[in-house]
């Protein structure tokens, strides 16, 4: 009789612990946010992988009812500010890159720090990057292109076609405002603002 009571108590404790663990697990997943908790404060990294939902041995956590594992969280979206140039580079091309990068990393530092925005540069004369020239209709002109990606999938791209003109004509303030305006609109998923130059 005594042993029966002990056994019952142990079983009840086991069930209780399992229920508590299940509840805690659901609370943790809910508080991680809609992006599955992929945002980090570290430097930008390649497309984040979904949060693991299984224990390290690959089996479902103890007490988790079969078939109730959470789906892997989708990769977060991010914007890449991608500056393309050719092999032969003049002072204007270098200025364009320097100024654009400054604007991205200084004026949008929060987005960069959170991994939502990343700076990249590319050379459309390199064999493995030649395809970007046709893809973004660069016409082999140094250009800043804003690209929204989710993991390895490109969702949207927007070319800042007036950038080089503003650099060449020495209109640094207009250029800065142009890049800021266009980048902010792109980050906010708004249409490209009309520009009059």
């Amino acid at each position: 009789m005594q042993s029966k009571k002990i056994l019952t108590a142990i079983l009840l404790l086991f069930v209780g612990f399992s229920l508590v663990e299940l509840v805690l697990k659901r609370v943790r997943e809910a508080s991680a946010g809609p992006d599955g908790g992929q945002q980090t404060a570290s430097a930008p990294s390649p497309a984040p992988s979904p949060a693991p939902v299984k224990a390290e041995d690959g089996k479902p956590s103890p007490g988790t009812p079969a078939g109730s594992e959470a789906a892997p969280a989708a990769a977060a979206e991010k914007v890449i500010a991608h500056y393309f140039h050719g092999r032969e580079r003049c002072a204007n091309c270098r200025n364009y890159e320097t100024l654009s990068r400054e604007i991205v990393e200084r004026d949008f530092a929060t987005h960069v720090g959170a991994g939502r925005l990343e700076w990249r540069e590319g050379n459309y004369d390199e064999p493995d990057q030649r395809h970007f020239d046709a893809k973004y209709k660069l016409g082999r002109v140094p250009t800043l292109v804003l690209v929204r990606v989710q993991g390895d999938t490109e969702l949207e791209a927007r070319k800042l076609g007036d950038g080089f003109m503003l650099i060449v004509t020495g209109e640094k303030d207009k250029f800065t405002e142009y890049v800021r305006r266009q980048l902010q609109a792109f980050l906010d998923k708004k249409p490209a603002p009309e520009e009059e130059f």
Binding site: G139, V141, M165, T169
Partner: peptide, 12 residues
């Protein structure tokens, strides 16, 4: 008049 827009139109 200056016509700087030529720089934006080079790709097309």
């Amino acid at each position: 008049k200056p016509v700087p827009k030529v720089w934006s139109l080079v790709p097309d």
